[in-house]
């Protein structure tokens, strides 16, 4: 079984918009070991979403290379290494909650490639629905749900496939502060392998392949609370200006947000953001 790490080497990407050339990314190097929760933070326009799309094979770099589990992004996509959580929930309005969650498991069924190459993490959909707190809403339609609940469905949809690499593009940015807080801990509980009520259901490292996460955000607290490591980017052209390991214990809890260590980490990330912006 291949290691599910992500390797980004010398990646550059430019866009042409109305005749003007914009360098979105300039020579980015990044290694994400398997099982790491990486947060990518930076001001808007720093190319963090572009970086995510390059990893997912939704865009191709002008220069450099990206590898996921030793495969180029298109091959990794074909082998079902990715679960994507976009900025908008992007649910299919004619599908029920359960059918939306199951959507990605149906793709490529006819070609017999729906299950990847055996690296998918087995997921029980009912347990997952319970974990995201949607029990009782399985047959509801998206327009009957609140924004927060729709984003829970989008989160569950990405987890349901069992893909070992989760790519999240500011998934909670459109939610109100209370719901966002709730969603952060929800994500932590699923990723850390706890049940929604906080009891240990299937702790990480219990023989199961750990999930690697690349989480794009513009929130300092979100990055520090969720991640093992925070990469800070600056804009125009986008590049990595700092790389900070977050040494907070797991499972993470709300109490940690008030700890001195947490405050110190956010201070460091903020300082890196400022220095990047000042250059």
């Amino acid at each position: 079984m291949a290691d599910g790490g992500i390797v980004v080497r010398g990646v550059a990407k430019s866009f042409r918009r109305r005749g003007e050339f914009t360098r979105a990314l300039a020579s980015v190097d990044l290694d994400v070991p398997e099982g790491q929760f990486l947060a990518v933070i930076g001001p808007s326009g720093c190319g963090k979403s572009t970086l995510l799309r390059l990893i997912a094979g939704l865009a191709t770099p002008d220069d450099g290379k990206v590898e996921v589990a030793g495969l180029d992004p298109l091959a990794a996509r074909e082998a079902k290494w990715f679960g994507l959580v976009p900025q908008a929930p992007a649910l299919l309005p004619w599908r029920t909650v359960r059918a939306n969650i199951g959507l990605l498991r149906e793709v490529n069924k006819r070609g017999g490639r729906a299950n990847g190459d055996g690296h998918l993490i087995p997921v029980d959909v009912d347990t997952l629905i319970a974990a995201v707190g949607l029990t009782g809403f399985e047959s509801a339609l998206p327009h009957e749900l609140s924004g927060g609940m729709q984003q829970r469905v989008a989160l569950a949809r990405a987890f349901a496939l069992g893909a070992p690499v989760l790519l999240m593009d500011e998934p909670f940015a459109a939610l109100d502060e209370m719901t966002r807080e709730e969603m952060r801990f929800l994500l932590l509980s699923i990723w850390e392998g706890r049940a929604a009520d906080g009891t240990a259901a299937a702790p990480r490292g219990s023989g199961r392949r750990p999930r690697t996460v690349v989480f794009v955000t513009h929130s300092l607290e979100e990055a520090v609370l969720l991640a093992d490591r925070v990469v800070v980017m600056s804009s125009r052209p986008g590049r990595i200006v700092d790389d900070i390991d977050i040494g907070l214990d797991r499972p993470r809890s709300a109490a940690q947000e008030d700890s001195d260590a947490f405050v110190e980490y956010t201070r460091r990330v903020r300082a890196a953001l400022r220095s990047g912006a000042g250059r």
Partner: peptide
């Protein structure tokens, strides 16, 4: 169709036919 929905489908290697049937036609 929402561009995000398209990207979610493409990220799991959905082909154009699958995108047409599952996403675009409905």
């Amino acid at each position: 169709v929402e561009p995000e929905a398209l990207e979610v489908m493409r990220s799991v290697n959905a082909g154009e036919w699958e995108i047409l049937v599952k996403l675009r036609l409905p």
